[in-house]
């Protein structure tokens, strides 16, 4: 815990006193969280606790009511070109993949670099192929998303995020929509990324991933960060009542 206190000042992503409401519903309650360069943070917690909203606030797909979010020391811009630039620097991988349905796998990966970064087409394509190779779907490059399995699509989505050379990648339950036999192939790609030093925020209930790759587990409930600890400590010795209840439930499965 004392570790994370020092991170608060230096974090690549730093949230301080963040609050967010959806109408009457208080979905983020005074969130303080700092994520260091190269750190992998797993966010865990019951459904509806605000995990997705937290991710979406970090790249400003959702606005916040109060508090501060800093990326690389800079406050998130509120609109226009600066906001687009911020989003380009923050990768996002969704539960439902959200690959561009009318574009080929290769185009899905090159689209951002071409349209947002204005990368040279040859270079963008070469880099995209390297990334597709890295996530193991290079042989599907000319197909359309609907022709791929869920696990393949999610790996392409990771390649799409990587193509922007993001400072941090947010994963919102990246394996929750996958058939069990495909979960591992996606987790392996993510573990690989973690090993290579990518800064990652991962909402997931995959304890195996958390134990292998995470530096820290953040437990959320009812819009609050209830507990923060190393994976080992959190899973073997949760301190809060709510975390104990929650782990009890997911361990029964």
């Amino acid at each position: 815990m004392s570790d994370s206190d020092t991170l608060t000042k230096t974090g690549l992503v730093a949230l301080t006193g963040v609050n967010k409401h959806f109408g009457e519903l208080h979905v983020l309650k005074d969130i303080n969280l700092s994520i260091d360069q190269g750190e992998v943070v797993v966010v865990i917690g019951p459904s509806g606790s605000g995990k997705s909203t937290l991710c979406r606030a970090i790249n400003r797909l959702e606005t916040i009511d109060s508090g501060n979010i800093l990326l690389d020391g800079q406050p998130l811009p509120s609109e226009g070109k600066a906001l687009a630039k911020l989003r380009a620097d923050v990768g996002m991988v969704f539960q439902s993949f959200n690959l561009f349905a009318h574009k080929t796998i290769l185009q899905n990966v090159t689209l951002g670099p071409l349209k947002v970064r204005k990368t040279d087409p040859k270079q963008a394509e070469q880099r995209a192929m390297e990334l597709l190779e890295r996530v193991g779907v290079a042989n599907q490059a000319s197909k359309y998303p609907a022709q791929l399995s869920g696990g393949q699509q999610q790996r392409v989505a990771i390649a799409r995020a990587l193509a922007m050379d993001p400072k941090v990648i947010l994963f919102d339950e990246p394996t929750s929509a996958l058939d069990p036999e495909m979960i591992q192939e996606v987790l392996e790609v993510m573990i690989d990324l973690a090993k290579q030093g990518m800064t990652m925020v991962v909402v997931t209930h995959e304890m195996g991933f958390a134990r292998t790759a995470a530096n820290r587990v953040v437990f959320m409930a009812d819009g609050e960060i209830v507990e923060e600890a190393t994976p080992e400590t959190f899973f073997t010795n949760p301190t809060s009542r709510r975390a104990q209840d929650f782990l009890g439930k997911i361990l029964k499965h």
Binding site: R87, N98, F100, L111
Partner: peptide, 21 residues
């Protein structure tokens, strides 16, 4: 909605999201 969201997350402007995706 996930299509537009993914496009925004990549950093496209509103007009790009609309015309490209």
């Amino acid at each position: 909605p996930g299509q537009a969201e993914a496009a925004r997350a990549v950093g496209m402007s509103f007009v790009q999201v609309l015309t490209i995706v």
